[in-house]
């Protein structure tokens, strides 16, 4: 096991969204535009990084019986910090992510990595794991966000990218479009994997 391997596994091999199918709620809810997807991705990565560091540091002093509540407290604390800092300095993004910021607490990716990785490995490896997983999460979110924003609004990061004759298919940024876009993207990933 080395640092680089832990870092890259989250991107493709163990991609949290397309392979592990974790953290579905934010994946579908906040990917109406690329900017929201990036905001959610970075917020979750920050929480994942901090909680992985703390949890790998305290792994020897937490009795195993109460480890889950302790992890939840650590994660919830970092989520609240992100929530407050975002409300103060990025109010527009905070507003559009809304309920899904506090809900990072119950994002299975974060508790999952705490339990499966950080509680068994040292700090350096946990940092690599968090960065890899967080980056994989952010990139996948942006991919879904890109498809939905281009198809549904004809823009990318707010800039017009389609010819003016293209009439955006609004359905892509509404709820049904979220499910259908992710479904087809996942099928595409499966197809690519089979070809290999």
């Amino acid at each position: 096991m080395n640092f680089a391997k832990e870092l890259t596994k989250g991107l493709i091999k163990d991609n949290p969204i397309f392979v592990l199918v974790l953290g579905m709620c934010p994946t579908l809810a906040v990917t109406t535009s690329v900017i929201n997807a990036l905001g959610m991705g970075f917020a979750a990565t920050f929480v994942l990084l901090c909680s992985n560091i703390i949890i790998s540091l305290i792994k020897n002093i937490t009795p195993s019986k109460i480890r889950i509540p302790v992890y939840i407290v650590v994660i919830a604390a970092f989520v609240s910090i992100v929530d407050m800092v975002m409300a103060a300095y990025l109010p527009a993004l905070h507003k559009s992510l809304g309920l899904f910021i506090p809900l990072i607490v119950v994002n299975c990716i974060i508790l999952g990595r705490a339990e499966a990785f950080a509680s068994k490995n040292n700090v350096v490896m946990s940092i690599a794991d968090a960065l890899g997983m967080g980056l994989g999460f952010t990139l996948s979110l942006s991919l879904v966000g890109t498809v939905r924003e281009i198809v549904g609004a004809g823009t990318w990061l707010g800039m017009r990218v389609t010819p003016l004759t293209y009439d955006p298919a609004l359905i892509a940024i509404l709820a049904p479009g979220a499910f259908i876009t992710l479904g087809f993207l996942m099928a595409l990933m499966n197809m690519l994997k089979e070809k290999k």
């Binding site: 009795p63 302790v70 407290v73 650590v74 919830a76 910090i81 409300a87």
Partner: peptide, 23 residues
Amino acid sequence: LGLILFIFCAVASGILAYINTLT
């Protein structure tokens, strides 16, 4: 066990209270 959990909660609440006064 309860005491350990309580300490964690107390530390977390303290940090949050501090950040709250800033933001």
